[in-house]
């Protein structure tokens, strides 16, 4: 594997980081807490952020690193992916994981030609409030309003948070009847949801 996420690149970055990194933490900052950090002068507002544009639609066509996205009203928008674009599809992935037909939400900067150079792309992302109706080894039965849906538990990807605790891959505290928030990736093939994060008791 080579390219921007290649092993060689990782090795190079690792050595750069371990060589001369700034360490920020308790030892370097003594008694500073989060409040003190926020008391510091705020960075000036980033001009790039105010120019951000958003695109929400379905991927109609993929040509190299350009995506032709059709919005709900039928408008076509071109999304350009760069080395600096983060792509999320259940987890951080590379642009190759994007498929025609995927739902897509992108944030980026509008270029003079009308296309959007994306900073971040979220593919098939869904955010649902559900009730747990059944628990199996590889999937959860969930209800959202009156509709039922299947939430797939993906090994090493699905995480849970209970009562505001840290994210964990240990789902053994899940119970039938729990009300939960599910962040996940919709699977168009069988209309189920791969669960990225299920939060209970927040």
């Amino acid at each position: 594997m080579t390219g921007r996420n290649g092993i060689d690149r990782r090795r190079l970055l690792t050595s750069a980081a371990l060589g001369g990194a700034t360490i920020v933490g308790a030892s370097a900052l003594g008694g500073l807490d989060a409040e003190a950090a926020f008391a510091a002068p705020m960075p000036s507002l980033d001009p790039a952020i105010s120019r951000s544009s958003f695109v929400d639609g379905r991927v109609g066509r993929i040509k190299g690193s350009t995506l032709d996205v059709v919005e709900a009203d039928g408008t076509h928008r071109l999304i350009r992916l760069t080395n600096a674009t983060s792509v999320w599809k259940l987890e951080t992935v590379t642009a190759e994981a994007i498929e025609t037909g995927d739902g897509l939400y992108a944030r980026g900067v509008e270029m003079p030609d009308g296309s959007v150079a994306a900073d971040a792309v979220w593919v098939n992302i869904v955010n649902l409030y559900v009730t747990v109706r059944g628990i199996e080894r590889t999937r959860l039965h969930l209800s959202h309003g009156r509709t039922t849906l299947v939430g797939n538990i993906v090994d090493k990807r699905t995480t849970a948070s209970f009562r505001g605790g840290a994210l964990t891959s240990n789902l053994s505290q899940l119970k039938i009847g729990h009300h939960a928030q599910v962040l996940g990736a919709w699977r168009p093939a069988d209309d189920s949801v791969d669960i990225a994060r299920i939060s209970v008791g927040h």
Partner: peptide
């Protein structure tokens, strides 16, 4: 999980300090 590390990072002083530089999500 990596998501837990990211969650920890995003609550850290290092993240606040580097926020003006960071432009993307996790790559």
């Amino acid at each position: 999980p990596v998501a837990a590390s990211v969650e920890l990072l995003e609550r850290s002083l290092a993240w606040v300090a580097a926020a003006p530089v960071v432009r993307s999500g996790l790559i």
